[in-house]
């Protein structure tokens, strides 16, 4: 009986030792020479593998960073400037700082603004509806509210508001990786400068149809009247057909256009309420994009 146990122990441990030796030699033989800095760089990256940098995963991004001489065009939107400074330090090259960005939804077709004219019954994917027809409302360009962007977000920064049926972006969680921008079949989500004190102004409409048509299906549509263009002191607004677009690099956040817009299509975020126009204090929810009606 004792010998059985002894032999068992002996044979198993010799097997283990033997396998260990074989593995050791195999590891030696097939060892791949790799720049140790790749591991270092990967170490300081966030490790979310979101693809926001344009490369498949953090490892690949680290490889590209190590291989390239400068960090031009290489930026990890998740880690931001701090992360890129670390990367630059490891590689001993200069860092290129970028201003913080965040995603905004350029549609304000809430349940209130845009009445539903039919009912969609089927699989809840925006892409499917987009391929099928214009959507539950009359607007062929607006949000369908089925949350492809929510599904694409790896940072849990988007949810569909029950009240409006539109996606809401949590700017604290949003890292501007751009996954939702790609996921939206109607290209409604845009990465914009986070802005000074997180303040932003943008046109929350993407309907390029003529004013009358756009207004017919949605109360908050940009009707292309051009008033904002005239009032803007910084030349930051241009008309793309009958649709206004605010260049976030030129915008100085003066808010003149917001007051001028007759349909409330221009949104301001994180501004204190105007004194002349008392509004319900949004401080509790000010961190998130609110679809408040800010028409003058």
């Amino acid at each position: 009986m004792n010998s059985t146990i002894l032999f068992t122990i002996l044979s198993l441990s010799s097997l283990g030792v033997l396998s260990g030796i074989i593995l050791f030699f195999i590891a030696k033989k097939f060892h791949v020479e790799e720049d140790p800095r790749i591991d270092d760089v990967e170490g300081v990256l966030p490790g979310a593998n979101c693809g926001g940098c344009g490369y498949p995963g953090c490892r690949k991004f680290a490889e590209v960073c190590v291989q390239s001489k400068e960090l031009e065009g290489l930026f990890c939107p998740v880690g931001g400037n701090n992360c890129m400074t670390d990367v630059a330090k490891i590689l001993g090259i200069e860092v290129i700082e970028k201003a913080a960005m965040t995603a905004v939804v350029r549609c304000n077709g809430s349940y209130q603004n845009r009445p539903r004219t039919n009912v969609y019954d089927g699989t809840t994917w925006c892409k499917i509806v987009h391929n099928l027809y214009s959507g539950e409302t009359g607007c062929s360009y607006g949000c369908m509210g089925l949350g492809d962007c929510v599904k694409s977000c790896k940072f849990d920064a988007i949810y569909i508001s029950e009240e409006t049926g539109l996606p809401v972006i949590d700017q604290d969680k949003c890292v501007a990786c751009g996954a939702c921008v790609k996921a939206c079949p109607r290209k409604l989500i845009e990465l914009r400068l986070k802005g000074k004190a997180n303040r932003r102004i943008f046109v929350a409409c993407s309907n390029p149809e003529k004013g009358g048509l756009a207004r017919k299906v949605c109360k908050a549509a940009c009707i292309g009247c051009g008033k904002c263009v005239k009032v803007c002191p910084f030349d930051a607004i241009e008309m793309k057909g009958p649709l206004a677009y605010i260049d976030f690099n030129k915008c100085k956040l003066c808010r003149k256009c917001v007051l001028e817009c007759p349909t409330g299509a221009i949104h301001e975020i994180n501004f204190p309420p105007k004194k002349s126009k008392p509004q319900p204090d949004p401080s509790g929810v000010a961190e998130k994009i609110e679809n408040k009606d800010s028409s003058a």
Binding site: G122, T123, K127, I128, N131
Partner: peptide, 13 residues
């Protein structure tokens, strides 16, 4: 199951 919904989605992608 909405088999065709998804197959169409795949085809369109």
């Amino acid at each position: 199951r909405p088999l065709l919904d998804y197959i169409r989605l795949g085809k369109s992608i």
